[in-house]
Design a protein around this nucleic acid. Sequence first.
DNA 1: ACCAAGTGTTAAGTATATTTGACATGGTGT
DNA 2: ACACCATGTCAAATATACTTAACACTTGGT
Lengths: 82, 82
Amino acid sequence: MSKKAKGIISNQIRKKRFEKDEMTQQELAKALGVTRQTIAAIEAGKYSPSLEVAFCLTDIFETSLDELFQWQADTSQTGEDS
Amino acid sequence: MSKKAKGIISNQIRKKRFEKDEMTQQELAKALGVTRQTIAAIEAGKYSPSLEVAFCLTDIFETSLDELFQWQADTSQTGEDS
DNA sequence: ACCAAGTGTTAAGTATATTTGACATGGTGT
DNA sequence: ACACCATGTCAAATATACTTAACACTTGGT
């Protein structure tokens, strides 16, 4: 119950992938040095990537971390505080 | 040999911590919801944080990911390519 | 000399990210 | 109908981030 829940991270990867030459998950995965499943999972929001992978993505899409990832800070203070 | 080595990530956490009211590792850790050892390890460059922790940091220091973390892309193509 | 606070560091455990291998689905071309 | 490609998804294994608990060192205060 009420895990850590700091916030929600979303990303523009799928979007960027289409903008960038209709790139396929497979191709992106190869360019990144990860597997296709990893891309799929990240796009699906199952988990968010490591900083390393995140940075590689900015390299490929020629963008910035702050443009590629969005952070929705958590406001629901369910648990205990200070 | 020649692991994955995409690049090197450095950060301004320690710097920001002093700028921000001489904040201690302990305090930062608490504000972040992680342990003191985690802060120490990240500052020492033993590993880089998850995107979640990274975003929390930008929240606390009122800065951006791109200002807090630096990415030195790897140029030494030791292994095989395409 | 002592104590407390801040930091470095290490070992063993849990949690999460990522891999490998597999199977299912929808689309497109033959 | 069949093959091919892109994607969704799942289970089991490995890698990395993070925790808990402990000990060492330095600095400042008494």
